[in-house]
Design a protein around this nucleic acid. Structure first.
Lengths: 331, 331
DNA sequence: CTGTTAGCGCTTTCAT
DNA sequence: ATGAAAGCGCTAACAG
């Protein structure tokens, strides 16, 4: 490994001068600077960022904890975060948890040990108390797509309640009055929020939705419509809390000769790529994942660099309806 | 920040003892060890992995360069790689290029500067010559899903030629004799390989496929079938070099009343999640992305740790046909 | 078994 | 403008 000392020797100057020639070229004489430059290229020298960070007490990196890499949900968040972080001159270090609580703890420790100056946390398995502890211990951390009232301004998240409300309004506005909702596992707070927003909105309008809990999987959606149709054959519109379940439901209907949307309308949540290839194309609710990731990255950077006024960073994001062809107007 | 010196003071021992108590607990007296442990927990001390790496001249991290995070293709590779790397006690540091040649160079430099002990490279924009330079300069690097004959045993990749051949054999075996292929941009080596394997195999069997170059996008596939059907109405089977294009083609057919597979058979490549939700469900060719990522991670780790015999690590992977409903038997 | 000492590669006063 | 020296937090001989 070629070090700064090698460059210094070759250029006939001291290490300090090489260091300056790299970090603050303007304060070093043009001639010596050229000498140093020459030595650097001749030796193909690369500064050791690790050593540099140690000396500077700054790693210029922001950690991020996600469940997994092979999902477009996390991929989009990462993508938004990385772009924002890179634009600010920092690096992103991502660690996955494999959806295990222990994995979340390991990732957290690992990122701190590797001297991340701030960390963005997306955790589903840990309970509020433990998460609150983290947030408390490390003021330079931000929560992504999860909400803790006590740390409100360090939470960047989708307003799932309003997302659920959006679905309710949409179905209601299209004339549906016999409505059902298929939720994900209720241990997820997103599920509770989406459910609350959906149900409230409908109750306000005088309709009581039928609710059935499922698992966010294709098969779960498949099974759910079947159950639903048996119990409540009068239903005309269903809200699925994610697109996978809606996809399963569409398949179940096709097999049974139930025509979507003529016989039954459906609206999903997430707008995964599959949504636009379903038959019919799925009307769904999209969350701005890339923006959420970017905001989380920006906030983490602000905390890391000691920026005090972070009021320009958006904390709460709104979902939007992507209307396609799976919901029909009824009168 | 609480350092090892703080712990040492608190425990009434030297830094060296603390260091040992952490890295090789068995070598330090049980009593002192307990003392140190107590101090560590009291102060909530976390070793600084950066400093540790500097002193050790080992970062225990493997870098990986990918185009983007928001794609299941890269997500699966990352997932496989991270799992393998973590199991070996190393960390993975991922950097994305945003599909720009400059981004690839930046990522490469960045990973080296951050002292990755080996790096896994997935680059599409750089030409063979530049890539060969990298591989030459850094013997501890591996190429993922790209092939350079000169560095054969540092390349982990899918055999795209045989993947193409697989598609050809499948269509031929189902009785198709008027066959077409819709390729991706020919600047990609995967495209050239898949094309070669497909065409060769068919020629061997006495059929000459119609070939049309497209762009790997949904719209491209849509346009391609239309063009194809006008020029060669006798065609009964088409091979699309990725599933997105097949999805577009299916849509074009539906709009025109052409029934897939009765009127026209289609086979894709990749097996993205969308494939199983298309109507009809798409028969396609799947590559073991997770395994490829894992193998790349293992090889990188072997190189990093100086393992000489890497013959147990698979270099070339085979694709497989996932038969669903978009190809029909013709006689 | 434990402490002392000398670095790892870099930055940063403090002089000159 | 440049150099010498100290130090970032940790590990690794080398003594004892």
């Amino acid at each position: 490994m070629v070090t700064m000392a090698d460059v210094a020797r070759r250029a006939g100057v001291s290490k300090a001068t090489v260091s300056r020639a790299i970090s603050q070229p303007e304060i070093v004489d043009a001639e010596t600077r050229a000498l140093v430059q020459a030595a650097i290229t001749q030796l193909d020298y690369r500064p050791n960022e690790i050593a540099r960070g140690l000396a500077n007490r700054s790693s210029k990196t922001i950690g991020i904890i996600i469940n997994r890499f092979d999902s477009l949900y996390y991929g989009s968040l990462l993508d938004g975060a990385e772009k924002a972080i890179a634009a600010l001159g920092f690096k992103m270090l991502a660690e996955s948890t494999r959806e295990r609580a222990e994995g979340e703890r390991e990732a957290w420790s690992s990122l701190l040990e590797r001297q991340c100056e701030a960390v963005v946390v997306h955790c589903d398995s840990l309970d509020d108390a433990e998460l609150a502890n983290w947030m408390h211990e490390r003021p330079k951390s931000v929560l992504m797509n999860r909400y803790l009232a006590a740390f409100e301004d360090r939470c960047i998240h989708l307003d799932n309640r309003r997302g659920g409300a959006l679905a309710a309004k949409f179905l209601h506005a299209k004339g549906h009055r016999n409505i059902a909702m298929v939720t994900g596992p209720s241990k997820f707070y997103v599920v509770r929020d989406r459910s609350a927003g959906f149900t409230e909105t409908l109750l306000d309008r005088g309709v009581t939705p039928t609710v059935i809990e499922s698992d966010f999987l294709v098969q779960g959606g498949y099974d759910a419509v079947i159950t639903l149709l048996e119990k409540e054959p009068s239903i005309t519109g269903i809200f699925f809390q994610n697109d996978e379940m809606a996809a399963g439901a569409i398949e179940a209907c096709r097999e049974r000769g139930i025509i979507v949307p003529d016989d039954l309308s459906m609206i999903g949540f997430d707008d995964i790529p599959v949504a636009q290839h379903l038959m019919p194309k799925l009307t769904t609710i999209r969350q701005p994942l890339r923006d959420i990731g970017a905001a989380a990255g920006c906030l983490a950077h602000a905390l890391a660099t000691g920026v005090t006024d972070t009021s320009d960073i958006q904390r709460v994001f709104e979902a939007e309806v992507v209307e396609r062809a799976s919901v029909m107007e009824v009168k």
